[in-house]
C-alpha cells in the first residue's frame, strides 16, 4: 500500500474541495471495496477524503419520491420502513448482496461506485484494460464464466457487480450529484456506462463530483415486485444472473412492467423492450417466456458463459412468476 494523504470532510463542499488539485484523490466511506483494491495494489489513490461525517444518511419521503442519502448504509436502507413498504424490490436486492457485515459498512454511494469483480482486473500480473488501459482484456479469451453477454466491447467484457443498482435502475431512480459548479441530476440508467473504448471509466461521474443522493419516484409496483438472484452459493456470492422484476397489475392484466438484469453487462441492464411487450398482457408463464426471449435479443456469449443465454431467460421468467404471485 502506498503512502497516501488522508483527510476528513464534514460537509459536501469540503468533500468536493478535498478532491481539488489531486487527480488521484478518492472518497472513502464504508471502504468495503476500495480498501481491498488498495491492498491488492489495483487502485493506488494518493489521497483519501473520508466523507463519513458528511450528513447524507437520511432516507425520507419527499413530494412524489423517496430520497436516499448517498451515505445511508446498505443495511439501513434494506430495513427502512419506507423502503420496505414502498420499494420492497430495493430491499430484496440489497439483502441479496454481500454479507450482513459488509452491508453494515457499505453505503449507497459506495455500492454504486464499486468496481467489477473480474479476476483479471484484480490480479496485477494479468492483463486488464480497465486497470491498465492498453494492456489487453484477459477475460476475452480467458476464464469468462462470470462475464457479460450484453454491451461488451473488444476492450472489456466485465460485469457490474451490484445487486442494489439492478433494483434502482428498474425503479426509474435518479442520481443527484454535486460538483464545484453545483448539483446535477442523472437518470440511474445513464449513470453507469458500457465499456466501449474506455473500460477504465465505470460511470459518468466526473473526477470532482460527489454522489449526494438517489431518488426513487413513487410508483404502484410494491405489491408485485421480486428480485431473483442465481449464484454459485446461497449467500455472499456475485450473481451469475439476477433479475429485478416489478409489475403494476389490474387484476391479472399487467399495466406497467419493470425488468432489469444483473450479472450480464458492464452496467445494470434495463430490459425496456421486454417491459413494453408485457404491458396490457394477462399474466402467464407463456407471456413471461415471450418477454424473456425479447429480453435476450442481442446477447452474445463467450467461451465459458454460454449458459447465461439459457439461464438469463429462465431467471427472467422465474422473477416475473414470483412478482406476479404465480409461484
Amino acid at each position: 500500500m502506498i503512502q497516501f494523504q488522508y483527510e476528513r470532510a464534514a460537509t459536501t463542499k469540503a468533500a468536493i474541495n478535498g478532491l481539488a488539485n489531486s487527480t488521484h484523490a478518492k472518497f472513502i466511506a464504508g471502504g468495503t471495496n476500495l480498501v481491498d483494491l488498495m491492498k491488492r495494489n489495483v487502485m493506488a489513490p494518493t489521497k483519501l477524503v473520508d466523507i463519513n461525517r458528511v450528513p447524507l444518511k437520511d432516507i425520507q419521503q419527499l413530494n412524489g419520491k423517496i430520497s436516499i442519502g448517498a451515505l445511508a448504509l446498505n443495511s439501513q436502507v434494506a430495513d427502512h420502513p419506507l423502503i420496505l413498504e414502498k420499494h420492497p424490490l430495493l430491499s430484496q436486492a440489497l439483502n441479496a448482496g454481500a454479507s450482513a457485515q459488509i452491508r453494515n459498512m457499505a453505503t449507497v454511494g459506495g455500492n454504486m461506485m464499486q468496481r467489477t469483480r473480474c479476476p483479471y482486473f484484480y490480479d496485477t500480473a494479468l492483463p486488464c484494460n480497465k486497470r491498465e488501459p492498453g494492456s489487453g482484456c484477459g477475460a476475452l479469451e480467458g476464464v469468462n464464466r462470470m462475464h457479460a453477454i450484453f454491451g461488451t466491447s473488444e476492450q472489456c467484457i466485465a460485469v457490474h457487480p451490484s445487486d442494489m443498482c439492478i433494483a434502482l435502475v428498474a425503479l426509474d431512480a435518479s442520481v443527484i450529484v454535486a460538483g464545484p459548479k453545483g448539483e446535477r441530476r442523472i437518470p440511474f440508467e445513464e449513470f453507469h456506462r458500457l465499456p466501449g473504448n474506455q473500460p477504465e471509466k465505470d460511470n459518468v461521474l466526473q473526477n470532482n463530483e460527489m454522489i449526494i443522493s438517489v431518488e426513487i419516484p413513487d410508483n404502484e409496483l410494491s405489491k408485485n415486485a421480486h428480485y431473483f438472484k442465481v449464484r454459485d452459493r446461497a449467500s455472499y456470492a456475485f450473481a451469475l444472473v439476477s433479475v429485478a422484476a416489478a409489475l403494476t397489475m389490474d387484476g391479472k392484466v399487467i399495466r406497467d412492467a419493470r425488468l432489469a438484469m444483473g450479472g450480464v453487462a458492464h452496467k445494470p441492464w434495463r430490459l425496456r423492450e421486454a417491459e413494453r411487450s408485457l404491458a396490457g398482457k394477462t399474466v402467464s408463464e407463456e407471456t413471461f417466456r415471450q418477454a424473456a426471449e425479447i429480453a435476450m435479443q442481442g446477447a452474445k456469449a463467450f467461451k465459458y458463459n454460454a449458459f447465461k443465454l439459457k439461464l438469463g431467460p429462465n431467471v427472467i421468467v422465474e422473477a416475473l412468476k414470483n412478482a406476479a404471485g404465480l409461484v
Binding site: S99, P119, L126, G138, R233, S235
Partner: peptide, 18 residues
C-alpha cells in the same frame, strides 16, 4: 498464464451458513 483466477473468498466459494 498458469495462474489461478479464483483465489480469494469472494471467488473461491467455501460453503457459508446459508
Amino acid at each position: 498464464f498458469g495462474r489461478y483466477v479464483t483465489k480469494d473468498f469472494a471467488d473461491y466459494h467455501v460453503p457459508v451458513n446459508a
